[in-house]
Design a protein around this nucleic acid. Structure first.
Length: 588
RNA sequence: GGUCCCGUGGUGUAGCGGCCUAACAUGCGGCCCUGUCAAGGCCGAGAUCGCGGGUUCGAAUCCCGUCGGGACCGCCA
């Protein structure tokens, strides 16, 4: 072994012990005679004091040392002299008086500083030198936090009889849903494996196999564009249970998360426990999105009835076209300048609105772009229904229901950030249930599965397959937190007749069903138990727990937004020989 | 595919039509210094301002294009 102790563990209790440490030079302070080296490893930093009476060999080594060189140091732990302690350091009561210093490896001048958390370089530079970026305390902390989260999940689920089972990474292309990553087959020219978008089918088949309770820390792959909260490969806690109903799954996951957070990030507070539940319809009406940030109010308020007979053309025509008029109240924003209101209108347009009406509540009555069209009665009605006070700004959108919800839901988040309405240490978990089973695809003129085609329709709605598929609700559910979709799951179909009905409604032909899902239908016919499950995203959870603004900060080696690994420079071209073996020809 | 924003020594910023022969901090090289902990002091090297074109007497600065990056929309069963 190169070391007897870690840099981070030394305390006053180690005083007068001889220790050998190995680590990186975090900082170096050369006073001409005495030299201080802050030696760092994953566990922490300790001050090493090099006095001028060392062997020449060691002194020569120290005189050349630069930041991030790798050293092995043997020395005596000593309590620091009175007044010399550093309360900012965990090891600040002691220092190691060097007896020998050996350079294990040198380091070139770094592209950026590992020490110091400010002045971070451009993210691509960090990603290119990710192995250096990960040396930073914050990143090391994020990686360890992630480990703790996953470890907690494993231990918890083990306690409740779950079995961790690995499923294949090389699997079969699924026709619907996200774009697949394809892997060409060498042995079967023209044929492809696909990387799993999730282990959905496999975990259901494990239920058919009688595993009863399964989980996996599962890597999933989707070839879609990236976002701050979306990577092409991501990790989810994939879990599935037999003989359960919706509330059994929700209760288990809620308990897991509640215990996990109090164990691992006790400084985080849950907004409410038990978590609130909303129907899909309700959450859209109140927050304008199916993944609401519940940490603050500013809910969407329907004022269609108040303005049903308004003289304002915009309101009139929205109602006539079957739309709605809704608003949100921005507290204390009545004094917004023309420029600020214009910027908000621009944001509303970007979200799909044709425009945005504003009503500022002032001591002299309503002002703003829509004020002159509002009668005194309407003004009173709006103030009373919204509870808007003097000094508030009411933002009104009139359009089709879906557009209005989206626009106001988006503006709500803009105000959250601008007015600091959401407490970063609050975790506002909630459940969204009763999703519609199908959504009409306007472009292709067919029904799409809102969740996925294996989701169980609510049994009361089964007759609607023939009459009104759009109204069928499913037994699907989402976990949301602070404006993110944290998990989604469902009770699954376990009967082949219902599964077939769903495939047919989705417009799949008989031969297609057989070719793509024959194995599922056949399995259901061999005694599939009722089952359901859920797949919470691990990247997003750790991101929230670590107070990071995007999931790249909690993934060791993420892709940048353009989908590249800038460290290894992937994707990259391959040798012609490889392509030939895979029966692939590149078209220019 | 779309909208918006960004691109100046190794790194982070300033400069936003002439004071720029590009400033500051940090890092880097050298010298001094025995108690600092973002050590300090002195000296020095290092950028033709992403790239190409245009406007102008004059461009890091204005315009167009392009490349790279970020945020968001589409997309993400």
């Amino acid at each position: 072994m190169y070391k007897t102790h870690t840099c981070g563990e030394l305390r006053a209790t180690h005083a007068n012990q001889q220790v050998t440490l190995a680590g990186w030079v975090h900082r170096r302070r050369d006073h001409g005679g005495v030299i201080f080296l802050d030696l760092r490893d994953r566990y922490g930093i300790v001050q090493v004091t090099v006095n001028p009476d060392l062997s020449k060999e060691s002194l020569d080594a120290v005189s050349n040392v630069r930041m991030e060189w790798v050293l092995q140091i043997t020395g005596m732990v000593q309590k620091r002299p009175a007044g010399m302690q550093n309360p900012k350091m965990q090891t600040g009561e002691v220092e190691v008086i060097a007896q020998s210093v050996k350079v294990l490896n040198r380091a070139k001048t770094l592209p950026f500083l590992v020490s110091g958390e400010n002045d971070l370089p451009d993210e691509n530079t960090r990603l290119k030198y990710r192995y250096l970026d990960l040396r930073r305390e914050r990143m090391t902390h994020n990686m360890i936090l992630r480990h703790q989260v996953v470890k907690f999940m494993r231990d918890f689920l083990d306690q409740y009889n779950f079995v961790e089972i690995e499923t294949p990474i090389l699997f079969k292309a699924t026709p619907e849903g996200a774009r697949d990553y394809l892997v060409p087959s060498r042995l079967y020219p023209g044929q492809f494996y696909a990387l799993p978008q999730s282990p959905q089918q496999l975990k259901q088949l494990l239920m058919v196999a009688g595993m009863d309770r399964y989980f996996q820390i599962a890597r999933c792959f989707r070839d879609e564009d990236l976002r701050g909260d979306r990577q092409p490969e991501f990790t989810q806690l994939d879990l599935e249970m037999s003989f359960v109903q919706r509330d059994d799954v929700l209760a288990l996951v809620e308990q897991l998360y509640t215990e996990l957070i109090s164990a691992i990030t006790p400084h985080k507070r849950l907004l409410s426990s038990p978590w609130p539940r909303f129907s899909y319809r309700e959450v859209l009406e109140r927050y304008g999105t199916d993944k609401p940030d519940l940490r603050f109010g500013m809910e969407l308020i329907d004022v269609s009835d108040i303005f049903a007979k308004s003289d304002f053309r915009v309101f009139q025509s929205a109602i006539e076209a079957g739309g709605v008029i809704k608003c949100i109240v921005a507290p204390g924003c009545a004094e917004y300048s023309r420029k600020e209101v214009d910027a908000l209108t621009e944001s509303a347009r970007a979200l799909g609105a044709k425009g945005l009406a504003t009503l500022a509540v002032t001591s002299e009555g309503l002002k703003g772009t829509a004020a002159k069209f509002v009668t005194p009665e309407e003004a009173e009605a709006v103030k009373s229904k919204t509870g808007a006070q003097e000094g508030d700004l009411i933002l009104v959108a009139a359009d089709q229901r879906a557009v209005v919800n989206k626009v106001l839901g988006g503006l709500r988040l803009i105000f959250r950030d601008r007015l600091d309405l959401a407490d970063p240490n609050m975790l506002a978990f909630g459940w969204v249930v009763d999703f519609p089973m199908f959504a009409w695809n306007e472009e292709e003129g067919k029904w799409d599965a809102e969740h996925h085609p294996f989701t169980m329709p609510q049994l009361d709605d089964l007759p609607k397959f023939e009459t009104n598929p759009g109204e069928i609700l499913s037994d699907a559910y989402d976990m949301v937190c602070n404006g993110y979709e944290m998990a989604s799951g469902s009770i699954r179909i376990h009967r082949s007749d219902i599964q077939l009905k769903v495939f047919e409604l989705l417009g799949l032909r008989g031969d297609e069903i057989e070719q793509k899902f024959g194995h599922m239908l056949e399995a259901f016919d061999y005694g599939a138990p009722p089952h359901g499950g859920m797949a919470p995203g691990i990247d997003r959870l750790v991101m929230l727990l670590a107070d990071e603004p995007n999931i790249r900060e909690v993934i060791a080696f993420p892709k940048n937004q353009t989908g590249r690994d800038v460290m290894a420079d992937a994707p990259s071209e391959v040798e012609p020989k490889q392509l030939k073996e895979l029966h692939i020809q590149i078209r220019e």
